[in-house]
Design a protein around this nucleic acid. Structure first.
Length: 940
RNA sequence: GCUCGGGUGGUGGAAAGGUAGACACGUUGGACUUAAAAUCCAAUGGGCAGAAAUGCCCGUGCGGGUUCAAGUCCCGCCCCGAGUACCA
């Protein structure tokens, strides 16, 4: 019988499907284990060989845990809202739902052919109304909540209202907008409904506000900070400008400290945790108020945040961000023109300019002064764009001797630089070292800086002009997108006040539109819908009532961003078909959290932060049982493509072979890797036919051949270096693809794909197959008991593979399989007692061939779901007990010998020792390593 | 600039502080073939000596250190990659 992988793979994939082999049960005697992949966006290009890497690893782990006796949840779905489908719709008029559906079909076919053990009965799609109903529902829960700092948890806004009614907001300790002001119960009760709503928006966890946003004119939408790369949009690379817009935001900043604290208990990669820590950016310091001097600034205070309150006596000026609200108020009449000119100039500078040009120092004096809180001296107030409006208070107290930027600014504008550090020379640059003593500083002179920080904070608090403060870099997340293909908000407007549509009427589904572009008057694409508001209103707000034009209020026309649906999907899998709840309590309490999450590190400060935020919120509301949803996380590395290049002589249609370029002026052009063989030779005929302009191209050849240049790059369609898993499965089979992807290198590392190397794994699979067949190609395994060498091979493979999977070193376990098979071939071993456990051992990696062999070995049940002894520790213990074979071929023992022996004499003694003889069993050792005085190593 | 990773043969990569280069690709030679593919066998870090078996020396980015023993641990550099970016 020949190894026919196409037949075998199709057969077992069908078997799994027919028998629903991988359906997970929400009730089980067995312990649960939840293995999750980051679900993909189904793009039109389909999968390339890089995509399944993480899925293969998680699948191996899921299958392994099933063998270990766990009830495994291993689901898959699609993050199916997104920009590409929408852009395709704009170009072609094709409804995004339709292209998405088609793309999903392709993905599903590609995933199925690799033989994943997903429980497809739990599939989710974020663009499915049955799913986004609950995304909208969670949005409503956020809207109805505020963050209580005393309880350190989200609480209903209704509680807040009750307190306001009784005692105003003086005692409220909540995460809220900076603009919030103090009011009494009396004042509150006299507010109009509109005024009350405006105040409540300062507290809600999702709220509407005028936000300075990253507006991308080319895409017609707002982008989050993590969707911008170097001042350009991540998608498409279009320029991005700052603009004020009314936007929904998520008060993620309320959770900054808990998001930080939560990291400690997570088994996540350190780089990823570091990235989140830096993104949250906690810094400890003080906020200090400076009184503005002079008439213009009467009763105005400038609040600054500083991490170095100990340097307060070194302040020689202040700098405000050009956008700071006080700038207009305090600027002296004679400086007004210059200040306005400066503000104008900086607002024109795009983010990109500002970033690429950090060195240039710009600023403008306002003519105003503030009073130093301790010395009373006037401090000049400047504006400068090195101060960011978005961080802290948008104002800094400048201490040129202690901060290099302040130092540069002072030098540039000729401002004095007082020295407040004992014995430090500041003539060249500022001293940012915290391990110094403070001098010339009144009551903190002579104290070390760290102590001085405390003293200053105490003094500030005593005088009520400042306090110790912790600041976070983490900004609230903008939650509105001017797009069609996203979740609609369950919101309509009365005037400019948002109203929530009662959750009983969810989902608010997307309307049909003629065009997917923004409307001509600049409204988001949903503005193109003609009957939407009417339909939605008649369905919900005024349901069962006759409605007329007056009761049809405008709906929110923005949609939610891509990260909305992906922020809670892991909970939905637990109970994916529940129509009454986002997931039932029983299911949530059974599965609780993800035990292993595998996905790319590019989501470090996006999805992985937002989803933690939502999970904590849901936890606060008592809706989920745990406040961190993924215990362990692994980042799989990218599989890179090996691009091929042809070199065209500039200004001609002549192509030079790679070796002949020397100093010719050439232009490197990507050429499709399928036109190049393993020796880098280009197929000239196919190349000429690949494009019209190549038809009559000339070639400078090396030995009659055209050699291409190679470079390792990200795999992408535009670089013509994409390798499709379909082709690999057709040529070598899914099991070989799975093994090879693991064999390429460590899971977490980026590594280049090289199709040529697959033959090694492919021939290994064929050899494995042949172990079970005799020379007449008939299935034949013997029932003889195994000998010592055969057992040794089996034991060491079991031990190595088991350990490797636990360490996620899948690459080395593939090597162990290869060694095992080679050794068994050399031993001519065809014994059931060896081959059967080996089949189980290999089944997570190569499930199809394992099923087939298992079947041939006479088993009727699928190998995939039963708990098997090979992966059971007890089994290992028994094996070792029965056959005490050394696993690693090395054994150490202590042997006391006289010191004056020669090396040869020691060798003799060692060889003669009974323990040595026991190990060697008559064989002679390859080498004996002797280090006089201490250690003897025998390698045999 | 800061924060993380990482530098090992022609290539991908293995190595509890203990035979560096497992396993594979590639290359070379051989077997089987009319031939090719496939398959199998052998060699393959560099250098020196030898007819050969074999022996010796040098080798994990660079310079130091700890240790009987360092790719691995410590200190100081250099280079590459990723993230972040005027965060007060």
């Amino acid at each position: 019988m020949k190894y026919n992988f196409n037949e075998i793979e199709a057969k077992w994939q069908k078997f799994w499907k027919d028998n629903q082999t991988f359906r997970a049960d929400n009730n089980s005697e067995r312990p649960k284990f939840y293995v999750l992949d980051m679900f993909p966006y189904p793009s039109g290009a389909g999968l390339h060989v890089g995509h399944p890497l993480g899925y293969i690893a998680s699948d191996i782990y899921a299958r392994y845990m099933r063998h270990k006796g766990y009830n495994v949840l291993h689901p898959m779905g699609y993050d199916s809202f997104g920009l590409p489908a929408e852009q395709y719709a704009i170009q072609t008029g094709q409804h995004p739902a339709k292209t998405t559906e088609e793309n999903i079909k392709t993905y599903r076919r590609q995933l199925d052919q690799i033989g994943f053990s997903f429980d497809w009965s739990r599939e989710v799609r974020t663009s499915d109304p049955g799913y986004y109903k609950w995304t909208q529902w969670i949005f409503i829960q956020l809207y109805e909540s505020y963050y209580c700092k005393d309880a350190d948890a989200a609480r209903p806004v209704q509680e807040l209202v009750r307190v306001f009614e009784k005692e105003g907001n003086a005692k409220i300790n909540a995460a809220c907008d900076d603009e919030v002001f103090q009011f009494s119960a009396n004042e509150w009760n006299q507010y109009s409904e509109a005024e009350k709503q405006k105040v409540l928006a300062f507290y809600r966890l999702t709220f509407l506000s005028d936000t300075e946003v990253n507006w991308c004119p080319a895409l017609g939408t707002v982008l989050a900070n993590d969707e911008i790369v170097n001042g350009l949009s991540e998608r498409g690379g279009h320029p991005v400008v700052r603009k004020k817009m009314k936007q929904w935001s998520m008060r993620i900043s309320a959770y900054a400290q808990r998001l930080l604290d939560g990291l400690e208990k997570l088994d996540w990669p350190q780089p990823l945790k570091d990235a989140q820590t830096n993104w949250i950016g906690r810094s400890e310091g003080a906020s200090i108020k400076f009184k503005v001097l002079g008439k213009a600034g009467e009763n105005e205070w400038i609040e600054v945040f500083t991490t170095r309150p100990d340097t307060i006596f070194g302040v020689s000026f202040m700098t405000l961000a050009p956008e700071h609200p006080l700038v207009q108020k305090i600027t002296a009449a004679e400086y007004l023109d210059e200040v306005n000119a400066y503000i104008n100039a900086t607002s024109k500078r795009s983010e990109r300019d500002r970033m690429s040009d950090v060195k240039t120092i710009t600023g403008q004096f306002t003519g105003a002064y503030a009073e130093h809180p301790f010395t009373g001296k006037p401090v000049p107030i400047w504006i400068g764009d090195y101060v960011l409006a978005g961080y802290g208070t948008g104002a800094v107290m400048a201490v040129p001797c202690g901060d290099q930027r302040d130092y540069d600014f002072a030098k540039h504008f000729g401002i004095e630089i007082p020295n407040i550090f004992a014995g430090i020379d500041i003539s060249e640059h500022a001293c940012e070292d915290k391990n110094v003593s403070i001098a010339n500083s009144d009551f903190i002179s002579g104290y070390p800086a760290k102590k001085a920080v405390q003293l200053v904070i105490e003094e500030l608090e005593k005088r009520k002009i400042g306090k110790g403060k912790i600041n976070y870099r983490l900004r609230d997340a903008v939650f509105s997108r001017q797009r069609y293909w996203g979740e609609p908000f369950p919101v309509y407007y009365k005037g400019d006040l948002p109203q929530i549509i009662d959750s009983a009427y969810l989902p608010i589904t997307l309307p049909e539109v003629e065009k997917y572009l923004p409307t001509e008057d600049g409204k988001p694409p949903l503005g193109n819908a003609t009957h939407w508001a009417w339909d939605t209103m008649s369905n919900s707000v005024v349901q069962n009532n006759r409605i007329d034009q007056e009761t049809v209020f405008p709906l929110e026309l923005n949609t939610m961003p891509g990260w909305a649906g992906s922020s809670w999907y892991f909970n939905r899998y637990m109970d994916a078909t529940n129509v009454a709840d986002f997931a039932g309590n029983e299911a949530l309490n059974y599965w609780k959290d993800v035990d292993l999450y595998i996905g790319g590190s590019e989501h470090a400060t996006g999805h992985l932060l937002y989803s933690r935020f939502w999970q904590k919120f849901l936890f606060d509301k008592g809706l989920v049982p745990v406040d961190e949803y993924a215990k362990k996380l692994i980042n799989q590395g990218m599989i890179l493509g090996t691009s091929a290049f042809v070199y065209r002589i500039e200004g001609s249609n002549e192509f030079v072979s790679h070796g002949l370029i020397s100093d010719k002026k050439v232009q490197a052009l990507h050429v499709n890797v399928s036109l190049v063989n393993a020796s880098n030779e280009l197929d000239l005929e196919q190349f000429k036919n690949s494009r019209v302009e190549y038809k009559n191209a000339g070639f400078l050849l090396e030995g009659g051949k055209y050699y291409v240049g190679r470079e390792v790059e990200k795999m992408s369609k535009s670089k013509y270096n994409v390798v499709s898993p379909d082709d690999i499965c057709d040529a070598y089979g899914a099991d070989t693809l799975r093994l090879y992807e693991m064999f390429l290198g460590p899971l977490e590392q980026a590594k280049p794909w090289n199709t040529a190397g697959i033959t090694g794994v492919s021939s290994f699979i064929k050899k494995l197959w042949r172990l079970f067949f005799n020379e007449e190609h008939e299935f034949f395994v013997s029932d003889e008991s195994p000998d010592k060498d055969e057992l040794k091979t089996l034991h060491k493979t079991i031990k190595k593979v088991d350990q490797d999977i636990a360490d996620f070193s899948f690459n080395t376990s593939v090597s162990s399989f290869m060694i095992a098979v080679n050794e068994l071939i050399a031993l001519q071993c065809n014994k059931r007692a060896i081959l059967e456990p080996l089949t189980v051992l290999i089944s997570p990696y190569a499930p199809h061939i394992a099923e087939e062999l298992w079947h041939l070995l006479g088993h009727r049940e699928s190998i995939a779901t039963a708990a098997f002894p090979v992966y059971n520790e007890q089994y290992l213990v028994e094996l070792v007990k029965n056959y005490p074979v050394s696993f690693n071929g090395k054994l150490r023992f202590t042997l006391e010998l006289p010191l004056d022996l020669s090396v040869q004499e020691i060798e003799k003694e060692v060889l003669a020792h009974p323990k040595t003889q026991q190990i060697l069993e008559g064989r002679s050792p390859k080498k004996i390593i002797i280090v006089p005085g201490k250690i003897v190593n025998i390698v045999g």
